[in-house]
Design a protein around this nucleic acid. Structure first.
Length: 400
DNA sequence: AGGTATTCACATGAAACTATTCTCTGAGTTAGG
DNA sequence: TAACTCAGAGAATAGTTTCATGTGAATACCTGT
């Protein structure tokens, strides 16, 4: 124990590299947003009528992840809110991320959130959905006001709950007497609108704004600006920012990812008690982010899911390409070992599809002609994290 | 040889079922007047 | 009679199961040369 005595003293003595870590976090909103001027202008143009108490058109915003959609939207609306306050305009803006589990990923929960925004608490279950609708509707129409609803990752909502919700929401506007509602939908699925019901499509996307990905130079610029705020002077080695933006640009210009890389790299360097962030930290950071993501997913999945993954890990130790049937066999064996009732192959098949979606495995449907059709599966995690995953899974169901 | 027809081993889809959590309602019960 | 209790009906949701149907191409099977 003695050797830890001075741990915290040492810790305090260490020079932190960070000046302000928040700057690199995803929810941070800088005062000036670079390289998105035209988008800001477009969004502002569409929404501006709200300040004259005219209902603005519904707006649909799309672009890849990390292209600044959410950032710009929040920025513009917060400016509007300020102006509205000054001029005593009753304007409400409500931001909702539809992807958040247990918050707004179903019709019911979405409406419940909205109702809650108006101070009407709605239980998490037990009520019929249309009643929640009525509650929201009445709360909204109880006074004269403009309500701007921002639905982030709206594609997730539609995928899970269908587009009826959107239809209902756009229609609600026609029934409102005193207030007005307009919807801003944000999606990173570029072809999402086309899959919508034509009626919904036409009313939701009266206006559209496209956010192109940042290019490598723009990302570099953003990184530079932010890292001067985030880190102390002379703590970032030459070439680090370039490398970082190159990484991010490779992935369709995802600025969020670049910032995260920077932050994690900084944390790593700090933990190693170094005075500078070196290029190698970027590589380490990338690995760490990936590993954390995979481990996080693994741990938060239900047991059955973990068993399936375990079976895949075991099998892929022997061979590179494995098939659904083999996985299912192994899976059943493990289940009986740990006394778990195995699920049907149908379900396991879905799980494999999900693992594929999450990027943990790589599944390709191939036809082996006479010998059937199946998924050809490879593990798509870095070699270095495989043992870790195995270890975690071993522990999780007390095997070996 | 060239052209169909089969067939495998799953994939994919839809509907229905299970279990859990929660509300609301109304019948029955209780306590006080 | 008003207030209270409590069981039962009904909802939402996640996770499955059941049943049904789809599918790409390596083989098997013909067919006429």
């Amino acid at each position: 124990m003695k050797k830890f005595n001075r741990f915290f003293d040492e810790f305090l003595k260490k020079e932190p590299l960070f000046l302000n870590k928040e700057v690199l976090q995803s929810f941070y909103t800088p005062d000036d947003i670079s390289h998105r001027d035209s988008q800001i202008k477009e969004v502002a143009n569409v929404l501006a009528p709200a300040l004259r108490m005219e209902s603005p058109s519904n707006l649909f915003i799309y672009g890849k992840t990390g292209s600044g959609k959410t950032l710009v939207t929040r920025y513009v609306t917060s400016l509007m809110k300020k102006t509205a306050e000054k001029n005593k305009i009753n304007l409400k803006v409500f931001y909702l991320n539809c992807k958040l589990k247990k918050v707004a990923d179903t019709e019911y929960r979405l409406m419940a959130q909205l109702a809650k925004e108006f101070g009407k608490a709605v239980p998490s279950t037990g009520l019929p959905t249309d009643e929640v609708y009525t509650i929201f509707y009445e709360a909204l129409d109880s006074q004269e006001q403009l309500f701007i609803l921002i639905l982030d990752e709206i594609d997730q909502l539609v995928k899970k709950a269908g587009d009826d919700i959107l239809y209902n929401l756009t229609r609600i506007n026609a029934e409102l007497k005193k207030s007005k509602l307009s919807i801003i939908g944000i999606s990173n699925d570029l072809v999402f609108v086309d899959s919508l019901d034509p009626r919904v499509k036409s009313s939701l996307s009266e206006e559209e704004v496209l956010f192109p990905p940042y290019n490598a130079l723009q990302i570099q610029d953003i990184l530079k600006k932010r890292s001067t705020k985030a880190f102390k002077k002379n703590t970032v080695a030459a070439g680090v920012i370039e490398k970082c933006s190159a990484y991010a640009a490779r992935e369709h210009g995802d600025a969020r990812r670049a910032l995260e890389l920077m932050r994690v790299a900084g944390e790593l360097a700090e933990r190693q008690c170094l005075e500078k962030i070196e290029i190698k930290h970027i590589d380490e950071a990338e690995e760490k982010i990936e590993r954390d993501r995979v481990l996080d997913i693994t741990l938060n999945q239900p047991k059955q899911f973990q068993v399936v993954l375990y079976a895949i890990v075991l099998l892929s130790e022997k061979r590179r390409n494995i098939f659904t049937g083999e996985i299912y066999e192994i899976y059943k064996k493990i289940c009986s070992e740990i006394k778990l009732r195995p699920l049907t192959q149908r379900r396991v098949s879905d799980m494999l599809a999900e693992l594929d979606m999450m990027g943990i495995i790589n599944a390709k449907i191939i036809s082996k002609g006479r010998y059937g059709r199946t998924r050809e599966i490879t593990l798509s995690i870095a070699q270095s994290t495989i043992p870790k995953i195995k270890e975690v899974l071993d522990k999780s169901f007390g095997l070996k």
